[in-house]
Computed example of a mutant assay.
Amino acid sequence: MFFLLRIGFWLTIVFLLLPAVTGGPSPHGASGNGEPQVSAVEALSAASSAVADAGGFCERQPQACTIGAGLIAMISERAEAGARFALSYLSEQILEEKRKAATRALGAPTGDTLTTHDLSPNWQGPKLPAALVAPSAPDPAEARPAAPANAVPLPPKRPA
Rank of each mutant, 00 (worst) to 15 (best):
L5C: 05
T103W: 02
L71F: 01
Q124D: 06
H117S: 08
D112Q: 09
R84E: 14
A160H: 07
A20I: 12
V41M: 14
I75T: 08
A81F: 00
R144V: 09
K127I: 10
M1I: 10
D53I: 00
A81L: 08
T12W: 08
A46H: 07
V38L: 15
A40G: 09
E35H: 10
P156S: 13
F3P: 01
F57L: 09
A20R: 14
I7D: 11
G8S: 09
A108C: 00
H28L: 15
A43E: 08
V14L: 14
Q37M: 11
I72V: 15
E96F: 02
C65L: 04
I67S: 02
P140L: 09
A105Q: 10
F85M: 09
S49M: 12
A50Y: 00
L4Q: 11
R158W: 07
C58E: 02
F85Y: 04
A146W: 06
A108T: 11
S120D: 07
G82H: 09
E42I: 03
P156A: 13
G23T: 06
P19S: 02
G23R: 08
V21K: 12
A50M: 10
P121T: 11
T115D: 03
K98R: 06
D139W: 04
R78Q: 09
E96D: 07
A102G: 01
T115E: 05
A20T: 12
A20M: 13
P135A: 15
Q63W: 05
T66P: 00
T66R: 08
R60Q: 04
F9E: 10
S39D: 08
A20Y: 11
T115F: 02
V133G: 04
A130I: 04
T22V: 13
K127S: 03
A141S: 04
S120P: 00
P138M: 05
E35Y: 06
E142G: 11
A143Q: 12
K98W: 00
C65A: 14
S31F: 14
A160N: 14
Q37I: 05
E92N: 14
G56Y: 02
S88K: 13
R84K: 07
A79H: 09
L90A: 13
V152E: 11
L44N: 04
G70R: 10
A105I: 03
P109G: 12
N122L: 05
G111V: 04
A47Y: 10
L11H: 01
D53A: 15
